[in-house]
Write a protein that binds this DNA or RNA. Sequence first.
DNA 1: CTTGTATTGCAAACTGTTCGCATTACTGTA
DNA 2: TACAGTAATGCGAACAGTTTGCAATACAAG
Lengths: 145, 145
Amino acid sequence: MKHEYFSSVLKKCGVKVTKQRVAILEVFEEGCKPISAEGIFGVLKKSKKVSVDLATIYRNLQVLEAHKVIRRVDLRGDSQLYELGGHHHHHILCTACGATEGFDFCIANTIEKHVVKQSKKFKVITEHAVELFGICSECVSKSKK
Amino acid sequence: MKHEYFSSVLKKCGVKVTKQRVAILEVFEEGCKPISAEGIFGVLKKSKKVSVDLATIYRNLQVLEAHKVIRRVDLRGDSQLYELGGHHHHHILCTACGATEGFDFCIANTIEKHVVKQSKKFKVITEHAVELFGICSECVSKSKK
DNA sequence: CTTGTATTGCAAACTGTTCGCATTACTGTA
DNA sequence: TACAGTAATGCGAACAGTTTGCAATACAAG
């Protein structure tokens, strides 16, 4: 199932299928939220199924990002977060409690068209980041008390 | 002129007007581009007008950001970049050579409305980041050679 | 099963950033 | 203009997150 799926993903990338890599991908899938290297390390340490070195995690995050299996998420935290590549979406972060939520729609294409039209320097846009920051309803009600 | 202007900005913030702070703000104004603590340090070192410790720069970046005199820019680099608060805009970064350009229009309000409408969790949005990544025309033509 | 090479674990190095503390220099008041 | 109180600075050391070198390991192809 999952294991086989991730194996095939790794094979398609042309990299070796190791238990560490599969374990890392499983953490991503189960978590459903952007997570850091240290975060993955913590999850795997607790689970005790596989022991993976932190350096190995960092190296694999690079490999997986290069093959677009995962992508970086810029949420202004102390450490770099990643999530499964899957479908395109963006995030909103609660600056009070750190809660995150994804949102599916994206009008970056519109922005990109504008930029390409107006900019002399840039005609090729390969990626974009759209992240919102706010206060989640829970924190709003807390602060009113 | 500039010096007096920055002094008044600092006074409005209720912080002391020091030559270091003014020097830092001058670097921001002259550079016209997002710059890092280390970057500011380098500029000031070369100029030799004022010597400012790196720790002082970091501390002041925090102070200035807290007072919204400057703002953070998330361009996925090794270090955190900042720019003068001034008018609202976003950036596009060339992933090949690091060149940046600002663009003025912004449809984040539209996205924000969507999010507020669709999300149960978030009704209050305070900030947003919209950054594009691409290849600048110069790098495109270089790669074709 | 064997072999070649990618990958891992471990420890050490590095980089960007923060902190503690004594010294300095702003700012408000006399 | 001098003075006192306090915020801000410089310096060094500490830190967190991340990267690297290298020997040992384990995957993949034959």
